[in-house]
């Protein structure tokens, strides 16, 4: 089912999303990938403040190419989510509501998604030129020294994603492949 929702969103909205929904996101999201996750995680374990608000927000696992003059951002598709698995439960337990990436998640992450009523979306891997068109503003807000891996605050419009793991733990990667196999 196609849905249009605004980000950030509350838990009440998260629970209306179901694995398999095609969703267009509009609003503010943040980019962070491997190095930024490690740094945020270490900072949180030390009991210090991290440079982005987690509550109700969505993190996009992204390291874009540099923008040419006149562009908001370069190519901007999702990176593999499983590399963030080690750090994700702590972020979810501290209020993060959603993640955009691609690929499988660990059992620990799925448990944390259910426990916190969060959601994991997939964007289409390898469609970075197309997805860049849905990003209307982009600003590095922290960890500038990490280059492409810095944290960006981004305004998106109708950014296309698919709900892969919903707040009840349903996993589209498992069900969709099973369903398709039945048609063969």
């Amino acid at each position: 089912m196609d849905k249009r929702i605004n980000v950030p969103f509350t838990k009440d909205e998260v629970v209306t999303l179901h694995a398999g929904d095609y969703v267009y996101l509009t609003g503010t999201i943040y980019s962070a990938r491997d190095a930024a996750h490690k740094r945020m995680y270490d900072t949180m374990l030390e009991g210090k403040e991290i440079p982005m608000e987690l509550k109700n927000n969505v993190i996009y696992y992204l390291g874009p190419t540099p923008a040419r003059e006149g562009q908001v951002i370069g190519s901007a598709g999702p990176t593999t989510a499983s590399r963030m698995d080690k750090y994700t439960p702590l972020l979810l337990d501290n209020g993060l509501n959603g993640m955009i990436g691609k690929g499988k998640r660990s059992k620990e992450v799925i448990d944390a998604i259910v426990r916190n009523k969060a959601v994991y979306f997939a964007a289409v891997g390898g469609a970075g030129a197309l997805l860049s068109k849905c990003i209307k503003k982009s600003e590095v807000i922290a960890y500038d020294d990490l280059g492409t891996e810095s944290i960006r605050k981004m305004e998106v419009e109708n950014f296309p994603v698919i709900v892969v793991i919903d707040s009840e733990g349903n996993n589209l990667y498992e069900t969709a492949v099973e369903e398709f196999r039945k048609t063969l």
Partner: peptide
């Protein structure tokens, strides 16, 4: 989406994928 992505990449010189 992948077909559309190739068209945009070629016409606007944006890398097909951000992982170059």
């Amino acid at each position: 989406q992948l077909c559309e992505n190739m068209d945009i990449a070629a016409s606007e010189q944006i890398p097909i994928c951000q992982d170059t």
